[in-house]
Design a protein around this nucleic acid. Structure first.
Ligand SMILES: [Mn+2]
Ligand SMILES: [Mn+2]
Ligand SMILES: [Zn+2]
Ligand SMILES: [Zn+2]
Lengths: 130, 130
DNA sequence: CCGTAACTGAAAAAAAATTTCAATAAGGTA
DNA sequence: TACCTTATTGAAATTTTTTTTCAGTTACGG
């Protein structure tokens, strides 16, 4: 989704599309999986508190996803369902779309648990580090 | 693995099996997926710094695993490969052994990435919260 | 425009993690 | 067993990260 669409969703939910929020959104959309520091440095005019609050807001709206891959939180635009390849040597994060889960097994492992979502991270060494 | 085995591994790697380390280990083995606070309250005589350092040591040795499921780090004894069912309502964490990954697809999604491990978390609602 | 509720950000506070360093003690050696 | 060496501990200080407060500002519907 392009930025305009996301901004529309913010307004549609009754929140204001302030310049600070748009700036944070632009910072996030510049690169997936950024740390807070990375995002902050991309919108230097926005106060730290506002960055925190905007990340909370956008996460709550489901427009941004917070990732806990170790080494502190990272953020990404919540686009299509995908998973991550994480290099244990250099820390780089790559994405892949193909979901290697067997859809027949998922409800089965759940039992009486109602499955709503999942996240899968694959760890190893990237081609550059090999 | 029982505690004695783990303690043996600590010694085997050249580290001392101090009472503090054993106390932290006992605290962790009392319950999977505890927060730092939970672990600390189970070994009140051990200083905070030592708890942090012991968790680092045991994680580095692969005897304990740190989990980032949101809401701060949690720790578990690194037993057999398993995954987690996380209730979005009450926050409870359950385990399941059966790995629903299709083993044929995993190397494929990697491409020239060398896959070494993976982690899978399933989110939803537990039976109690339904 | 105007009014108002939502929003911002500086400052302070709280929470979480790390560093420092003098004192202690585990475990090997004789 | 007694001793020695080096790893380990923990109180205190420091740093880093996140949250709270609150007075001033602003987006935006009417
Ligand atoms: Mn991603
Ligand atoms: Mn577990
Ligand atoms: Zn790499
Ligand atoms: Zn539940």
């Amino acid at each position: 989704m392009e930025l305009e669409g996301i901004i529309g969703k913010i307004r549609g939910r009754g929140y204001k599309a302030t310049p600070q929020r748009v700036a944070v959104l632009e910072a996030i959309s510049a690169e997936q999986h950024q740390s807070l520091e990375g995002i902050r440095s991309r919108c230097p005019g926005v106060g730290m508190v506002t960055v925190y609050r905007t990340l909370d807001l956008l996460s709550g709206l489901g427009l941004v996803r917070r990732l806990d891959l170790g080494d502190g939180p990272r953020y990404e635009l919540a686009e299509d369902h995908h998973h991550h390849l994480i290099c244990e040597d250099c820390g780089s994060v790559a994405e892949f779309e193909q979901c290697p889960l067997d859809p027949r097994q998922l409800p089965e492992v759940g039992g009486d648990f109602e499955v709503r979502a999942h996240s899968l991270e694959v760890y190893g060494r990237c081609s550059a580090c090999r």
